[in-house]
Design a protein around this nucleic acid. Structure first.
Lengths: 241, 241
DNA sequence: CGACTTCTTGAGGAGACTCAAGGGTGGTGG
DNA sequence: CCACCACCCTTGAGTCTCCTCAAGAAGTCG
């Protein structure tokens, strides 16, 4: 089990030795997915459950007519397939944006986690709530703000998540998405995204070359986005011991 | 503990006697909120945790400039305040759309649930994932479709949820939202909503008088929405016993 | 009945879309 | 090492959805 995965859990509370061990036992087996390949398709029958170890994936939902919405970018440490756990058919398609390494998690083992490691289960529950907050923020951003604000919010969110697992990245990061992907993520067309980027560059808010992005003025981007910075509750004292 | 709340849990798997009892012990105390009053405000310090017993509430996020996005409509049986459990400050504001009865849930008792009723905890986890799917669907709808499609998706979703707790409602239901609220929910302006409704009525898709809505042709509305019908996994066999 | 909220409708405008063409950029193979 | 190709990004023109602002109609409640 990787450090980036563990830190999602320890973000909320300290873990005991037994919890670390139990978390390590959760995953059995590996799966490698090449860039552009799908981890699963929406509508597929049983959903696999994975921990993303290396690389980026994106989950998306397609509409008749060819339009699609990118729902979320998954980074190392994220669990894949959890929402579809509640359904008969996969809710979303998950595509590998880079070469990806997955750790396979069996449903039974997840069930056993709830039985044997209540504290860990509660932490996993908190991670799910954190994901809900992120989805709520994105919904608000997409539903109530214009393209520039959405883009600012999205870039800041990805940057903040990258920074959580590596606080040495500074303002710049590699973004293995095409502008078509980014447009599908913020809910605009690639052509319009290109125009918005033109303004951002002119305002010295960022640089964006190929797959490298540098956020030159995060404070102004944050103000533009209109979203508050979300602080995690870093010592949840109500959790079982 | 009300039947409508229990059925959110039993939707995924059967519960034992002990589970029913544990669920009943989860709530202590009641809170009544008048229509238009807030259960909590975004940015507030500690988030209360509630089970909605009676009435409707809406959670929303506001932006500078006065625009707001309604994130979710809560119906009886829904838990309130869970996403903010992961944060230092409340993520969303929750307002009572009708007179509302809440059951108060203490964080400690939630923690104890994970410790003593692993099966119930896993079911609560599944409910959280179900909420994530709903949020994903709404994000896709708002990000990738036009006003008519969004409205169709939203109405069908609320209807389906109402039908889950009362399968005698038929096609019609009371909707305690103003058109301003509905507009904020689907991410358009009230003026435009009014125009979209005009078309829907002309196409005999629905009737909409004051606070009463009848979906005359749900099949066409569903096709219009572009979203698949989500079927819950009705016997999750991986859960702890 | 009167004040208020909510809904409808109009005119004008802005943000974002479509379609299309042109120019980079990186990768691949000769 | 260079040429070619595929993909990606940019930019333009025209259009449409949706917004803003505003006024009037309709419904609701005291």
């Amino acid at each position: 089990m990787q450090a980036t995965a563990v830190c999602r859990f320890t973000a909320f509370a300290a873990m005991g030795e037994g919890d670390f061990a139990a978390l390590g036992r959760l995953a059995h087996g590996r799966r490698r997915v090449a860039r552009g390949e799908f981890v699963c398709h929406e509508g597929d029958r049983p959903a696999g459950l994975y921990l993303l170890l290396k690389g980026w994936t994106a989950s998306s939902l397609s509409f008749a007519g060819g339009s699609r919405q990118l729902l979320k970018i998954h980074l190392p440490g994220d669990m894949l397939g959890l929402p579809s756990l509640a359904l008969r058919h996969c809710a979303d398609s998950i595509v590998a944006l880079t070469e990806v390494d997955l750790a396979i998690v069996a449903r039974r083992d997840l069930g056993a986690l709830f039985e044997r490691s209540p504290r860990l289960a509660a932490l996993l529950f908190l991670i799910a709530q954190e994901e809900r907050v992120a989805a709520m923020d994105r919904l608000a951003s997409v539903g109530a703000t214009d393209a520039a604000r959405r883009l600012a919010a999205m870039l800041l969110h990805i940057h903040a998540r990258l920074q959580r697992s590596d606080d040495t990245i500074g303002d710049a990061f590699d973004l293995p998405l095409t502008q078509e992907d980014v447009a599908a993520l913020v809910g605009i067309t690639p052509a319009h995204l290109s125009r918005v980027l033109l303004k951002f560059r002119a305002a010295r808010l960022l640089t964006w070359t190929r797959h490298r992005v540098a956020l030159l003025d995060r404070a102004r981007l944050a103000a533009l986005s209109g979203l508050p910075v979300r602080e995690l509750d870093r010592d949840a004292d109500w959790l079982p011991a």
